[in-house]
Design a protein around this nucleic acid. Structure first.
Lengths: 230, 230
DNA sequence: CAGTGACGTGACAGTCTCGTGACATGCCCC
DNA sequence: GGGGCATGTCACGAGACTGTCACGTCACTG
């Protein structure tokens, strides 16, 4: 699954450099040049991880980290702090603020990505293992979907689509976003293709559960246990 | 059976790298960045194996190895020393200190895992006993497979493949993972070779049991007693 | 209430994956 | 040296998936 990363740094050159590296590693990238915008994006887009510059005019990285950890909706998102080289104090402060790791500039893309993966893995238990909604459960280890413990079959794409939805419930996604997240950022297919796979997924879920995949007219789709309308 | 490994190194980047590799190989990973913590974790968590950096500030790896071998509770835990490139003395000292093997940096993940397996195999008297699923049973002591107490034949590779699957049920593995786990990390063969052995294994199991070896399209294979789809 | 745009759906051809039989090689034991 | 066994590759074919299209249906607008 493609992960979304929010990069927060006031220098655009650094943001761009990181963004390029991450995109090559098949991450989806969001950028913010200040804490305000970062906070908004974090709440709005729910990235899988945030890279945060330590030193920024206005609200500093640490302060932002602290706020992120206070917000209900962003608390679970892992944060990596980017700091100028080696003041030990930084580490302490940063980790106290709730950052999950920190890395000192200059760093190589490889190192950054290695750290990110490590952090994501640690954070994974949230999305790993089993998610269950109304008898429908997905087990990411066995890569299997079951309804009332009865395994059901679907194609790989439908599986990934459902996996994405179940770990991002209650939020509407556009076709373009779904293509990025489920198909991968570097694939080009028609947006309507999403519709077809949605259709296949609904069919696989059966009448009792297809209500979970909801159409958001004019926008895209959403996974939600709340039936809309009576 | 998942094994727990304690990684002791003062550089977090190296720990992370190793941790990633080991987790992909389905090890459970513990980390310590100094000897003190390592000792505590070793006593506390009783890992199945310890990877120890030779050079560390404070108490060195060798010294730690020595202490581990003195402690009653940690004596049996195999230790592999990680050393910088090739001073012969290290080897001697290390082995004298009680290390079970040593490996020089830089090393590939595959190499490391191969060594670890070798050490674990030596250390662990083929225990484990018997696993049984739907009349199919494997006895790791006698290295025998039987169906309803009728011994059945298969090649050594099929045996190892089945043994691996039966101790890691309900989880999907890629061909690459299976090659690492069953063939060994330092062997290079085509991924499709796995398919052929899966085929042979299924054949050996016969129609009544070949459903246990399931294809996960686009990914690899899985051992599960749950049949898909009704 | 007709018009317009968005979405649902069935069909289809191309592509990719996996199952399978055949085969060459290497090894061990007679 | 000659079987016999185990293994790794290959090539081929069946079947599973996928992306598009075309057309029908439905929701909203004015």
């Amino acid at each position: 699954m493609t992960r979304t990363v929010l990069i927060v740094d006031d220098e655009s050159s650094i943001r761009d450099m990181i963004a390029i590296a991450l995109e090559m590693a098949d991450f989806q990238v969001l950028e913010a040049d200040n804490a305000q915008r970062a906070l908004a994006l974090a709440v709005d887009e729910r990235p899988d991880m945030i890279l945060l510059d330590w030193m920024m005019p206005g609200i500093s990285g640490v302060e932002l980290a602290r706020r992120l950890k206070r917000e209900e909706t962003t608390r679970e998102i892992p944060v990596i702090l980017l700091t100028a080289k080696g003041e030990e104090d930084n580490k302490v402060q940063g980790l106290e603020a709730g950052a999950d790791d920190y890395i000192t500039k200059p760093f190589s893309p490889r190192e950054l990505i290695a750290r990110m993966r490590a952090v994501l893995r640690r954070a994974a238990p949230a999305s790993q293992g089993v998610i269950e909604v109304d008898g429908l459960s997905i087990n990411t280890e066995s890569q299997r979907i079951s309804i009332d413990n009865q395994p059901i079959d679907m194609g790989p794409t439908e599986y990934r689509l459902l996996a994405f939805f179940m770990s991002h419930q209650e939020r509407a996604y556009s076709r373009a976003q779904l293509l990025d997240q489920v198909w991968g950022a570097s694939v080009y297919v028609e947006e309507r293709t999403v519709d077809v796979h949605i259709r296949r997924l609904r069919k696989a879920l059966g009448e009792r559960h297809d209500y979970l995949i909801q159409t958001v007219r004019g926008t895209g789709y959403r996974f939600s246990r709340q039936r809309s309308r009576a």
